[in-house]
C-alpha cells in the first residue's frame, strides 16, 4: 500500500461497482432531460429494436396494411409475426418447400420469402 491514505489505488473497478456507477450516470442523464424527453427516453429504453432484411414489395404491402388498420408498421409486423410463430409451432406452417441450401457457414438453408398470395 502506498499514498497518503495508506492504500494504493487499483485502477480497474470491480465490475459490480462499475455497473452501479453506470446506473447512477444514466439516472443523472435522465434527470437532466426535460419531462417530455425523459418520458421518450424511458420509452426508448423499454423498446427492443431489431433490423431485418425484407423484400421491398413485402415492406410496401405491410405498410399499406398498417395504414389500412390505423396501426404502426412495427406493431403490425410484431402482431403478425406472433401469430405466424404460433402457427409454425403448431405445425400449420411448413417451411420445407421454401428452404434452399445455403453457401453461408452460419446457416444450413436460405429461406425464400414467398411472393404475395
Amino acid at each position: 500500500m502506498t499514498g497518503k491514505a495508506g492504500a494504493g489505488r487499483r485502477s480497474a473497478l470491480d465490475p459490480a461497482v462499475a455497473e452501479i456507477l453506470g446506473q447512477f450516470q444514466q439516472r443523472d442523464r435522465l434527470a437532466a432531460l426535460s419531462p417530455a424527453d425523459r418520458k421518450r427516453a424511458w420509452k426508448d429504453r423499454a423498446r427492443n429494436r431489431v433490423i431485418i432484411d425484407m423484400p421491398v414489395n413485402l415492406e410496401a404491402a405491410l405498410n399499406q396494411a398498417a395504414r389500412r388498420e390505423g396501426v404502426s408498421f412495427s406493431a403490425l409486423v410484431a402482431f403478425l409475426a406472433r401469430h405466424a410463430l404460433g402457427q409454425w409451432r403448431q405445425g400449420q406452417i411448413d417451411l420445407g418447400p421454401y428452404k434452399r441450401p445455403s453457401r453461408s457457414m452460419r446457416f444450413e438453408f436460405v429461406l425464400q420469402v414467398p411472393d404475395d398470395d
Binding site: 489505488r9 485502477s11 473497478l13 470491480d14 459490480a16 461497482v17 456507477l21 447512477f24
Partner: peptide
C-alpha cells in the same frame, strides 16, 4: 451516488460491491 463515485475514484478496485 456522490460518495460511491468519490470512493471509487480514490480507491478503485479496493471498493467492493
Amino acid at each position: 451516488a456522490e460518495q460511491m463515485r468519490s470512493l471509487a475514484d480514490a480507491f478503485g478496485a479496493y471498493v467492493w460491491p
